[in-house]
Write a protein that binds this DNA or RNA. Sequence first.
DNA 1: TTAGTTAGTAGACAGATGTTGAATAACCAT
DNA 2: ATGGTTATTCAACATCTGTCTACTAACTAA
Lengths: 201, 201
Amino acid sequence: MTGMGKKVDRRVLRSKEALKQALLRLMEQKDFDAISITEIVEKANYNRGTFYTHYENKEALLGDIMEDLIQDLMQSFRAPYEHQDIFRIDELTANSVQIFEHIYANAAVYAILLKSKVILSLKERMFQAIKQITMEELVYENTDNNINPELSAVYAIHALLGLIFHWIEGGFKYPPSYMQEQLILMINWRPREARTNHKRK
Amino acid sequence: MTGMGKKVDRRVLRSKEALKQALLRLMEQKDFDAISITEIVEKANYNRGTFYTHYENKEALLGDIMEDLIQDLMQSFRAPYEHQDIFRIDELTANSVQIFEHIYANAAVYAILLKSKVILSLKERMFQAIKQITMEELVYENTDNNINPELSAVYAIHALLGLIFHWIEGGFKYPPSYMQEQLILMINWRPREARTNHKRK
DNA sequence: TTAGTTAGTAGACAGATGTTGAATAACCAT
DNA sequence: ATGGTTATTCAACATCTGTCTACTAACTAA
């Protein structure tokens, strides 16, 4: 699944990589919005036209950077299951905590992306990636209740990602182990009395 | 809290409103990125300089539009509690379903915003607004467990918002009542066996 | 109604953007 | 190594951007 594309011209690989690195380095110094395309190509030592043959705009270039991160993340997410054919939903929640370790390992890059509002697109992209995995490869056993499987996945994944990005935005205030522990606690938590009707005073 | 600002020059109100409407109308026809500031002011019949006296860029104008929506949303969110001084956490979840009704009522505007990736900022802004309410005015009773209150709020709110925006993106495939029902079901759901240790085969 | 304040207009400016065409250079497959 | 393909360069172009100035019009408070 990783090497499925046809061979790419080496010039393209070089150009794109140089542009990505140039943007990342610039983003360490100034805000994404304040960076011009002209600035990027000058830092990367390429012609401005070259940029436009590969990307429509700054955002597309940044999207490419994020895609690299996503691939890395997904690999670590799938890793525990690579020997098995399928996921089991009750193992998913317990193992999704592995994501915290991955994020923590790549903390530097995430910190850079955080400075712009780009991080929102990254979150969305992560959601799509994780959802695809869970919906395609997961086995849903709890067919006894009438919970919509897709909505359930949306609910759980957004909760998880919300937790992760809150953790990133807070500058990794807690260690990964604490975040994992809290996630497990909240998954197992439910309101003191389950109510379908609610009576106001 | 609503009328706390000082009186604003009527010209400002007119200009800003005209610019907002112009942008919204343009966004019905073409993508946000493809709309130029020049285009906006021409549609609104104002000088380009006028735009820059009020907004830094397109995004700021759009942010203003979203802020109006947020105010509306928060009002509907607080409405059930306006007689009480405080929220109770177990009532929050049951009553947050009111949001679905609000979204459904403003479906047209949300559909327009959906076409750009602007909707991500809106989601983030909604999160901040709801979190502020829940953290400031909510009473946390469950101090017997060791769940971090802030993380718990982050978890629950992102799950809720994830559900809402999935609903929007899907073109309101289900009625509000169904979404509310599903939300309640998922809040009360927990894994078949609560485990702190997990043993792999 | 008037005086003081502020918003809006018009024009000009350097720089950035997005697109194009023609020439050159680097690459890939054979 | 050669030929066909494609990336890259360079220059030029109209347009948009962001900022500024001086002038005019509209608003607010008294």
